[in-house]
Nucleic acid binder design. Structure first.
Lengths: 216, 216
DNA sequence: TTAAAAAATGAGTGATTACTCACTTTACAG
DNA sequence: CTGTAAAGTGAGTAATCACTCATTTTTTAA
């Protein structure tokens, strides 16, 4: 439970048996795709960066696109896995009495994930609009499975009287917008000293719960 | 005041005098860049789609990148212009008594803009991570000018007692996250019949004002 | 009507692209 | 050791890339 978040490591170790050269190819490809974009990265460049002959790439991956997909797929499958697939059901009835506490844990969890997998995440976001395979995977893994789970979670807290009545899809959208907005801005400005992270997290949670209007 | 939002038309008509062929090049380039991405689009493809010789492109634009920038720059400059540069100051003290009304107008305004300029907007978002010139322009036009104006607007409504006390930057971030989240999801699912647009707009505004917690 | 300027052309440039394949090296079971 | 399969190689492929330039067509103005 220490560093299950490092998807790169996870893929390099667990999955199938990868040769040393193959690992180097993956690492080099992630770096280049993230920096320059998929289409603007050449296979010769990846080979050079990986210290490998260009032919070696095509021994393991039939095409350049297949290399991309082999990198991005595990992120898809695990993007929200720690909470969703493993823990969400427990969370639902046991762990968090208050929705606010769930939000806090959620933000912390996804923040770590994003930090640990920023390069791969960036590739994913960049290429989804152009790669139909990726879009399908995304809809399958994220949009359907994950979103459905969150909807149920919202309904749970609605039943408890902590969340107002509205379609659960809308509630998920609104909360997710705020959290994703926080995560993205934190990933850009998080290192600056004007950014008070603790405070911003609390403001985000407070905002999701109570908005920004003055109570009277 | 009818269709000032169509940036493409605006560029093609107003700006400098463009030849017919040049207009066709711009239209073809926007289409291809939006569909396949900048790096994956070839100049020969643009020329063919525009019904123009490839050399004609390079008569007007020194490089392919210059073509990209000439397309995206006006969007930058005008992305939030209608509200910001032209109307925001008036709005500030006169038009909207309540912050909620401002939000409503804001959402409607930006929704139209996005709908009318979706292809160019997509290109902008896609290429900002890879084109330093675009990033600079973005910081100059959007991040600084626009964000500063919004911050002032928030402070105005804080002074009126309609928004709780918090750093104005944080309030802008939170409200903008909710609005942008709405706009993006609307641009994807907005055509489906499960999407009740009026209701989602109101929920978004209500969320920004009061969050999703049950009042008691 | 004409001459100069601007716009447009498309064949041609060398560089680079993703990918192939005959070959060599390495790993390992019997 | 030996044989076999997998891993790795890098020169070579045709296609495509962004871009050039000598030439032709169109526009403009006197």
């Amino acid at each position: 439970m220490t560093e299950e978040d490092l998807i790169l490591q996870q893929v390099l170790n667990e999955e199938e048996e990868l040769t040393e050269k193959q690992k180097k190819i993956i690492i080099a490809a992630i770096e280049s795709f993230s920096e320059k974009g998929f289409a603007a990265t050449s296979t010769s460049e990846i080979a050079k960066k990986a210290g490998v002959a260009e032919g070696t790439i095509f021994r393991h991956y039939k095409t350049k696109k297949e290399l991309l997909i082999s990198i991005v797929t595990p992120v898809m499958a695990k993007l929200l896995a720690p909470f969703i697939i493993k823990d969400l059901n427990k969370v639902l009835d046991r762990d968090f009495e208050k929705f606010e506490d769930f939000l806090r844990a959620m933000i912390e969890n996804r923040k770590k994930f994003l930090k640990n997998n920023f390069a791969i995440f960036k590739i994913l976001v960049q290429e989804i609009p152009f790669q139909p395979e990726l879009r399908e995977q995304f809809l399958e893994h994220i949009a359907k499975k994950t979103f459905g789970r969150f909807a149920k979670l919202v309904e749970h807290y609605q039943a408890k009287g902590q969340i107002i009545e509205m379609p659960s899809a809308s509630a998920v959208r609104l909360a997710a917008s705020a959290i994703i907005g926080y995560l993205l801005i934190n990933s850009v400005f998080g290192s600056g000293k004007e950014w008070d992270d603790e405070a911003e997290i609390e403001r985000t949670i407070e905002f999701i719960m109570h908005g920004i209007s003055k109570k009277e």
